[in-house]
Design a protein around this nucleic acid. Structure first.
Lengths: 239, 239
DNA sequence: CCAAAAGTGTTAAGAGTACACCCATGC
DNA sequence: GCATGGGTGTACTCTTAACACTTTTGG
C-alpha cells in the first residue's frame, strides 16, 4: 500500500489475510506471595480447556489500547491501573488456524481491588503464580517471558510497582514487592533511604493493624509528585 | 477468536477488516553531521509525492521482521546492521483509507556501506537530517519522534551506536556520534576512559589518513567480546 | 519476657565529574 | 612554526554498599 508493488498486490484480488489481536499479561501481587498472572480458560478450539492470556481480536473501529481494556473487562472484569504496550508477536504459524498478529500489553493490577470474572464471557479467569504456570496456548509462554523480563527491568527505573499495592501500605509491602519481582534480597535500610529520598511517599497517620510485631506506619504513593518529577526529567533507580 | 464472543463475531459474516503493515525508522550517521533518517517519496495517493517512512503491507506468509527487511531492500536497497521492533501504531484513522496497524522498527545503518535505491521500486529514497525533516505522510512524524527517543535512551546503555560507524574508525568518530545522538557535549577524557574500560574496542595498526591534525589510531568494535559480556549480565552505561 | 517485624546511621570503597596541557602531523 | 585534532592523569565529590542494634507491639 505504501508503494506501487503493494498497490498492485491489493488491486489484483490477492488481499492480505491477517488478523489483528491484542493479548495482555496482567500481573497481580498478593501480599508476600509470588507474583501472579491472570489467565483465562479457553472454551473454544484450539487449545479448548487450556489456559491462555486474556485477549482477542481488535474491532475495526477500536484503538488497540481500547481493545485490550475491553477484553480485560469482558473476560475478567478487570481494569488495570497500569497498562502499556509490550511487544508485537506476529510470526507465521503462531496460531494454527489463521495468521494472527498479536499486539501484547503489560498490565498491573492490585488484585485486592478487583474481583475476577464478575460479568465475564470466558469460562474462567484465574490468577497463577509465575512459578507455577500451567501449559499455555499458542506462544503465550513466550509472551509471558517477555513481559517478566520487561517488568523486572522497568521496575528498577520507574516506580510502576506502586500500582500493585493497596492505596495505603506499610513500607514492608513495598520491600516485599521489590524482592519478589527482582527475585533477590535487598538491603532494607538502603532501599528505604533511596525510596524516601525521592519524596514519593506520603506518611499517613494510620498504622498496619494485622500481623505480629511492631505495627508499621502506612504510606500512600504521591502520584502528582511523581508526574512533576517525571516532567523535569527525573530518573528513578533501584538496585 | 480467543473467546466465544469473538468466534460469533467471525462466523456472523462481520469479518475483521484491518491491514497489517510494517514501517522502519532507519538512522544513518554521516561523519560530523546530524543524524539522518531514510525517507521514501510516495508515488501513489494518499500523500502522493510526499515523504514517508519505508514500509508496506506484510505478506500472508512472511514474518514481521522479514517484511521490514524486504521493504527496506525493495524500496531503498538497504540491509540494516541493526534492526529491532519499536512500537505498534494502530489508532483508528491513522490511514485515511483503511484501518492499518503498523508494526514499526528502529534500524541503524552505516550509509557509507549502502548505496541508496539501487534496485528500488519506489520513486526515490533519500537521507534527511533529523533536524530538517520534510512534512511527513500519515503519523510518521510521531513514529520518528518515538524512534529518536528510543535511540537516545538506548544508546546510553547498549553499544548499538557502533553499527553506525565504519568497520575501522578513529575514536573521535565515536565521540562525535555520541555527541550528535545525545545532543550535548561530552567530556572527551571521561568518555574515552569509560569506553576503554569495557574493553570493547580493538586497536588496529592503522591510523586515520585524512584531515588535518594528528592522525588518530583506528579501532574496531569487538562484537564477540560484547556478546560475551552481554551474557554475563553486563550493563553498558554512558552519560 | 519473648517473638516478630519496624525503624534507624555510619563508614569505607568505588564511580563519576571536572579540569588543561602536551603530542603528532600537514602545510 | 602554527593550526588542527589526538592523546592522556589527577583530585574532588558523590553515590553506593556493607553492616546490626534498638523499638514497639501482641501474646
Amino acid at each position: 500500500m505504501y508503494s506501487q508493488r503493494k498497490l498492485k498486490m491489493n488491486t489484483s484480488k490477492k488481499l492480505q489475510d491477517i488478523k489483528v489481536a491484542v493479548d495482555a499479561v496482567v500481573f497481580g501481587y498478593f501480599d508476600k506471595e509470588d507474583l501472579h498472572i491472570l489467565l483465562i480458560k479457553r472454551n473454544i478450539e484450539p487449545f479448548k480447556g487450556g489456559w491462555a492470556l486474556p485477549g482477542g481480536l481488535v474491532l475495526d473501529d477500536e484503538n488497540l489500547d481500547d481493545a485490550v481494556r475491553r477484553e480485560l473487562h469482558e473476560e475478567a472484569g478487570i481494569k488495570p491501573d497500569f497498562l502499556e504496550q509490550l511487544y508485537t508477536f506476529g510470526n507465521v504459524g503462531r496460531d494454527p488456524r489463521n495468521r494472527v498478529v498479536s499486539v501484547t500489553y503489560l498490565g498491573l493490577v492490585n488484585p485486592s481491588y478487583h474481583q475476577l470474572s464478575a460479568d465475564s464471557d470466558a469460562d474462567d479467569a484465574q490468577w497463577f503464580s509465575v512459578n507455577k504456570l500451567p501449559d499455555l496456548a499458542f506462544d503465550h509462554k513466550e509472551i509471558i517471558d517477555t513481559a517478566l523480563k520487561r517488568l523486572r527491568t522497568k521496575i528498577q527505573y520507574q516506580p510502576i510497582g506502586f500500582n500493585l499495592l493497596n492505596e495505603e501500605f506499610p513500607f514492608s509491602d513495598l520491600e516485599n514487592l521489590y524482592k519478589t519481582i527482582i527475585g533477590q534480597e535487598i538491603d532494607r535500610r538502603n532501599f528505604r533511604k533511596k525510596i524516601m529520598s525521592y519524596g514519593l511517599l506520603n506518611e499517613t497517620q494510620n498504622v498496619k493493624k494485622e500481623g505480629s510485631g511492631r505495627p508499621g506506619k502506612l504510606f500512600t504513593f504521591n502520584q502528582e509528585k511523581y508526574k512533576e518529577l517525571e516532567e523535569e526529567g527525573f530518573y528513578f533507580e533501584i538496585k
